[in-house]
Amino acid sequence: MGARVITNFAELYPIQFSGECSRSLSNCIIYYNASILSNMLDYRESNGKDLDVLKHISPVAWQHINLYGRY
């Protein structure tokens, strides 16, 4: 049994929409993380603290984001 083939736009639209929503959410999280890192960089620079710690942190990390709404 082979993979199901999408034959019309009505079937393709929800898949495209879902992908666009996922990309938008990912971009929001990356922007949020980059903003936090930028503030941390400014704080550490102004207080003369070591900046090497920030070299190992990626704005693409998701561990601190709760996508399920439960605490």
Rank of each mutant, 00 (worst) to 15 (best):
M1A: 06
M1Q: 05
M1R: 03
M1F: 08
A3K: 10
A3W: 05
A3G: 07
A3C: 01
A3P: 00
R4I: 09
R4E: 06
V5Q: 05
V5C: 03
V5D: 00
I6F: 13
I6P: 01
T7Y: 04
N8S: 12
F9V: 14
A10R: 12
E11I: 01
L12N: 01
L12R: 14
L12M: 14
Y13E: 11
Y13H: 01
P14V: 03
P14Y: 04
Q16L: 15
Q16D: 01
F17V: 07
F17H: 11
F17C: 00
G19H: 12
G19R: 15
E20S: 12
E20M: 14
E20V: 12
C21M: 15
C21F: 13
S22N: 13
R23K: 15
R23A: 13
R23G: 07
S24Q: 13
S24A: 15
L25F: 10
L25C: 07
L25M: 14
S26F: 09
S26V: 05
S26D: 15
N27W: 11
N27C: 06
N27L: 13
C28I: 09
C28M: 13
I29L: 08
I30V: 14
I30E: 08
I30H: 02
I30L: 04
Y31Q: 10
Y32T: 05
Y32G: 01
N33Q: 03
N33H: 01
N33G: 00
A34S: 15
A34E: 11
A34K: 11
S35D: 11
I36K: 09
I36C: 09
L37D: 02
S38C: 04
S38P: 00
S38W: 03
N39F: 03
N39H: 11
M40K: 09
L41Q: 08
D42A: 09
R44Q: 07
R44A: 10
R44M: 12
E45S: 10
E45Q: 15
N47D: 05
N47L: 12
G48S: 05
D50K: 08
L51V: 06
L51H: 04
D52H: 06
D52M: 08
V53F: 14
V53E: 10
V53M: 10
V53N: 02
K55G: 10
H56Q: 13
H56T: 13
H56D: 14
H56S: 14
H56L: 09
I57A: 04
I57K: 03
I57G: 00
I57T: 06
S58T: 12
S58A: 06
S58C: 03
S58M: 00
P59Q: 02
P59L: 00
V60M: 09
V60F: 09
V60G: 01
A61Y: 05
A61L: 08
W62C: 07
W62E: 12
W62R: 15
W62P: 00
Q63L: 03
Q63K: 10
Q63S: 11
H64Y: 03
H64P: 02
H64D: 10
I65S: 01
I65Q: 07
I65H: 07
N66S: 13
N66R: 14
N66Q: 11
L67K: 12
L67C: 10
L67S: 11
L67M: 13
Y68N: 15
Y68P: 00
Y68A: 11
Y68I: 11
G69H: 05
R70F: 08
Y71M: 07
Y71C: 07
Y71G: 06
